[in-house]
Every structure is written in C-alpha cells, then in structure tokens.
C-alpha cells in the first residue's frame, strides 16, 4: 500500500463513518493482472478495497453522474418534505476532476452532492501499448514498481519502462493534480510534457485524400458497440442520437458511411467537452485511433476560443457562449 492509498482509504472511511457521503466510488484490484475495476463502497468497513496505481484507467466521473441521476429520478416521486440528498464521494485524478467540472457547469448535479477525493496521477498503462510490447501474448502476471513494469507472459518475463507503456493522453497531460478537490491525497509536480497537438499538426499536414483514407480506414473497424460513448463522462444523455429512429441519424446495419457519421457526430458533441481522459480509446475493442480526431476539437477549442475543457468552473463551454468578435475567417464572401 502506497501513501496515496493509505490517505484515500482513511479519508473514505472518515467520510462514510461520519455519514458525510453515501457512497465512495474508486478503484479496486481487477480480476486480471495489471487491471483495476471501479468499486462502489457504501460502508467504512470496505475501504481496504480501494487502490490507486498506474493501472487505474477509467474516468470515474461517468459513475458519479449515473449514481446521482438515478437518485434524482428516484426522488422525483417523493414528497418534498421527504426528499433526501445523496452525496457521492469520488477518487478523482486530473481528468476525472475536469469531467466533474463539466458536469457541474452543465448543471447535472450540485457541488454539494459530490465530495472530491483528489489524487495526483502521472498516467496509466495503455493496454494497446502493453500488448504491442508483449507481442500480444496473454499476460499472466504483472506488477509496477516505481518506473518499472514487470510483465509475465507465457513467453517469459519482460521488464519495461513505465513511460514506454503510458497512454498517449497521459504523456501530454499537464493536469497531474485535480482541478477541484475537497481532500488531497498528495501532490506531484506537473509533468513537463510534450506538445499535446504535435500529432494533430502532423495529421493536418497530410493531403485531404490521405486524411480521408486514414479516417475511413479507422472507422471501418468500428462495430458500433457504443462502448466509447458509454464510458465517456461527457456522453450522458438518456437518449442518444445514435439510437434515435425518428429521424434516423445513424442507420442501423453495417454500412461504413454510418460508422463515419456516428463518429463525426459523437466527436462533434465533444467540442469543448472532451477532457482527453482516454477512456474511449481504452475501451475500444477495435483499437480505433479516436484520440487523433478528438484532439483536433481540443486544439480548435484552444486556438479559436482560448478554452480548455473542464479546467475552470466559471468558464462557460465554447458552444454555450459566444463573443461578438469571434473569428470568422471561414465565412465565405463572394468577389
């Protein structure tokens, strides 16, 4: 148990024992090596399940949203005098806290309905990179010790540098400490990170047809399982355009064009709202390079409107606000 785990367990226990929260959402050991799973704890006796390490991949904000929405719905039919508030505690690293900020800005729940247990984070292990390094062999055991990841497969034991297998979004993330928190389990210096848009610039420099070829090739892999949407904290609508039938935005069936349209629309919904947590990339069973496209929206958000998703509570999202003198270089004027 590291110091951070000790601190979050103590804080979670205190919050639950003193009835300050009804539920703590965190990470527990997974059933597979080098994996963790979300855990929902409602009693102080269970806090020893909580872990925090470089195998914690999920952005837990989506579960906070789900728990509170469910509670709000259940309360709708309760008499005003009997209404109860539910408070959810959550283990939040940088990107998770940014998603919480987005929920708060979008008035999904009140600040007093959440208790943010902040944890410093220097990144998580990307399953795709790990598979690449181990030639796709099944991982039977693994451990992380400081900067070294030891992976055991049927073919033998490999030692890897942590940085080699960290997710791409973590390598360019400067939000190593949460942007909001009620309790801090520790702090680390912000990463001196590489240019987060280097990949976008490189892609934009390709020709239109090269870009289209790449985009359509990636989207052809999509089986529209909607896992990327389901895991995304910013995709919380109860009914989604992707399943609407009147109008049918995305056709049922396996037409590649519908894959493309689905992702164009899903990603467009992320304009100014994607916190680059990488959860969608992590869950995609087809290994689709979603980040390459999402980052473009992030770049425009920053370049056009000087905004960064979920960083400041009092800064409205770009599509919920405007300035009279917003750049309009794309507006066509006839000669």
């Amino acid at each position: 148990m590291n110091d951070i785990e000790k601190n979050i367990r103590e804080e979670a226990k205190r919050l639950l024992d003193e009835n300050l929260v009804d539920l703590v959402i965190g990470y527990q050991e997974g059933t597979l090596p080098l994996q963790t799973a979300p855990v929902f704890i409602s009693s102080g006796d269970e806090v020893d399940k909580l872990v925090f390490n470089s195998c914690c991949k999920q952005n837990l904000a989506i579960y906070v949203h789900a728990a509170l929405k469910q509670h709000h719905q259940a309360q709708e039919r309760v008499k005003p005098e009997d209404k109860k508030q539910k408070v959810v505690g959550v283990i939040a690293r940088g990107c998770t806290s940014r998603s919480l900020v987005i929920h708060l800005q979008e008035q999904q729940y009140l600040r007093e309905e959440i208790v943010v247990i902040g944890v410093p984070c220097s990144g998580y292990i990307d399953k795709n990179k790990l598979a690449e390094k181990t030639d796709g062999a099944e991982i039977v055991a693994g451990s992380v010790d400081g900067d070294t990841v030891t992976v055991e497969t049927a073919k033998g034991t490999t030692k890897l540098k942590l940085d080699e297998v960290l997710a791409g979004n973590c390598l360019t993330c400067a939000y190593n400490n949460p942007v909001i928190s009620d309790f801090s389990a520790g702090e680390i210096p912000a990463r001196d990170c590489a240019d987060e848009f280097a990949e976008v610039d490189e892609f934009a420099a390709l020709s239109e047809s090269e870009r289209w070829d790449y985009f359509s090739r990636e989207m052809n892999k999509c089986m529209r399982c909607f896992a990327c949407r389901n895991i995304c904290p910013s995709c919380y609508c109860a009914s989604c355009f992707a399943e609407q039938s009147q109008p049918e935005w995305v056709g049922a069936g396996i037409n590649p064009s519908d894959n493309q349209v689905f992702q164009v629309m899903r990603m467009f919904h992320m304009a100014g709202r994607c916190v680059d947590c990488g959860s969608c990339v992590e869950v995609c069973a087809e290994g689709i390079d979603l980040r390459k496209f999402l980052k473009k929206l992030d770049q425009d958000d920053q370049n056009l409107y000087g905004h960064k998703a979920g960083v400041k509570l009092d800064e409205p999202s770009p599509l919920a606000s405007f300035r009279e003198n917003d750049r309009e270089t794309f507006i066509f004027e006839p000669e």
């Binding site: 985009f215 467009f268 304009a271």
Partner: peptide, 27 residues
C-alpha cells in the same frame, strides 16, 4: 453567433478528416 461557433468547429473538423474544404460553405 452561437451557430458561428458550431460551424467553425464542424467546418474545421470535416476538413480535418478529409472532406474537401469547398464542400461545406458558410456565409
């Protein structure tokens, strides 16, 4: 003014994925 921001994002995005710049025109 709100639409202008949506269009700016969409126009850039469509071009980024490889849709020719002149296919979508805003005025």
């Amino acid at each position: 003014l709100i639409a202008r921001r949506k269009f700016a994002f969409l126009n850039n995005f469509l071009n980024y994925i490889g849709i020719e710049a002149d296919r979508t025109i805003f005025t």
